[in-house]
Amino acid sequence: MADISPKLAAMLTRSDIRFDLLSLLPQGWRPYAALARLDRPIGTWLLLLPCWWGLALAGNLSPLPYLMFAIGAVAMRGAGCTINDLADVEFDRQVARTAQRPLPSGAVSKRQALVFLAAQMLVGLAVLVTFNLPTILWAFGSVAIIIAYPFMKRFTNWPQFVLGLAFNWGALLGWTASFGALHWPALALYAAGILWTLGYDTIYAHQDKDDDERIGVKSTALHFGSETKFWISGFYAATLLLLGLACWGAGVPAWASALALIGMGGHFLWQLVWLDIDNPDNCLTLFKSNRFAGGLFLLPLLIAGALA
């Protein structure tokens, strides 16, 4: 497949320019910002969007929970990256793309990283206590998954599934923050998010497949190999089916559900048409574009809520 045009690639990645953001910070802060991936906001978006999906699916348009989830997503994504880098520091030294991260490069020590991790977790906790008790209790259920994820690539070909469990937990929290209890549409939304993550993170993993194979790290990219497009097509199709089920169960108007699913589905189709699993730049661009895919599903739900 031909490469994505340079103009389109720049449009899709312009909010992820590392140097510009880090250069605005004091010199001593930059390694910690890089450790938390503050210069690479795509991960924060992919963590935040399921939270906002849960709120929007519940018809909750109050600005405060959207803001609090945004702050929490920044803190918890940073904490997750710090945990990941502490666990993977020896692997990261052997992979070209990750060798210059703060821990493997020595810019931040393990002790400093642990202190920074504690600070980020405290910010997350401060955000969490602003929600109702069921949301607080459900949130603690994700901690074990967050800690376990970095080690999964050592034991299973499906670490992307565990990432999906962690990254989409916010779909449950957005719903419980609105209703104070968990109902089946939120579970359908959560399952859809897991399948979405299996798709986009398999694309992401194809960047490192040669290094991963060399050092013995497992991934769905290596597991699926040349059949990757077939598997991602299935994941994305199942994502749309479960999102449609969640919308139906939550009473989302038919027109809003249709717009949400057509928009996201069209974006999925575009990804599959352009995907070149042997081109790391192509994989990274398509991976980052998933913030638009998630936004295309979110926007019609917000509009429907505003019109209700």
Score class of each variant (00 low, 15 high):
5 S>N: 10
10 A>F: 04
10 A>R: 10
10 A>M: 12
10 A>D: 13
12 L>R: 05
19 F>I: 05
23 S>R: 15
24 L>W: 02
25 L>V: 07
29 W>L: 15
35 L>T: 03
36 A>N: 04
39 D>W: 00
41 P>V: 10
42 I>Q: 02
43 G>H: 04
45 W>Y: 13
53 W>T: 03
55 L>V: 04
58 A>W: 10
58 A>R: 09
60 N>P: 01
63 P>D: 05
65 P>I: 05
65 P>R: 00
66 Y>K: 10
66 Y>H: 10
69 F>K: 01
71 I>A: 03
73 A>F: 01
75 A>Y: 12
76 M>N: 05
77 R>S: 15
77 R>I: 13
82 T>N: 00
89 V>K: 09
100 Q>W: 01
101 R>F: 05
101 R>Q: 09
110 K>T: 06
116 F>T: 14
119 A>C: 11
120 Q>K: 08
122 L>S: 06
123 V>Q: 11
123 V>Y: 12
131 F>H: 01
133 L>Y: 01
133 L>P: 00
138 W>F: 15
141 G>F: 10
144 A>P: 12
144 A>L: 15
144 A>M: 13
150 P>D: 11
151 F>S: 15
151 F>E: 07
153 K>L: 02
155 F>K: 14
157 N>R: 15
158 W>C: 06
158 W>R: 09
158 W>L: 06
166 A>Y: 08
169 W>P: 10
171 A>K: 06
171 A>R: 07
172 L>R: 13
174 G>T: 13
177 A>E: 07
179 F>C: 02
180 G>N: 10
183 H>S: 11
186 A>S: 14
186 A>E: 09
192 A>V: 08
193 G>D: 04
200 Y>H: 12
201 D>R: 08
212 D>E: 04
212 D>A: 06
214 R>F: 08
218 K>C: 05
222 L>S: 04
228 T>A: 14
228 T>Y: 04
233 S>P: 01
234 G>W: 02
235 F>V: 09
249 G>Y: 11
253 P>C: 02
255 W>C: 04
256 A>Y: 12
258 A>G: 05
258 A>S: 06
259 L>Q: 11
260 A>D: 05
260 A>H: 03
261 L>V: 07
264 M>L: 14
270 W>A: 13
270 W>T: 07
275 L>P: 10
281 D>E: 14
281 D>V: 15
285 T>Q: 02
289 S>I: 02
294 G>T: 11
299 L>T: 00
299 L>V: 03
300 P>F: 02
304 A>C: 05
304 A>K: 11
306 A>N: 09
307 L>S: 08
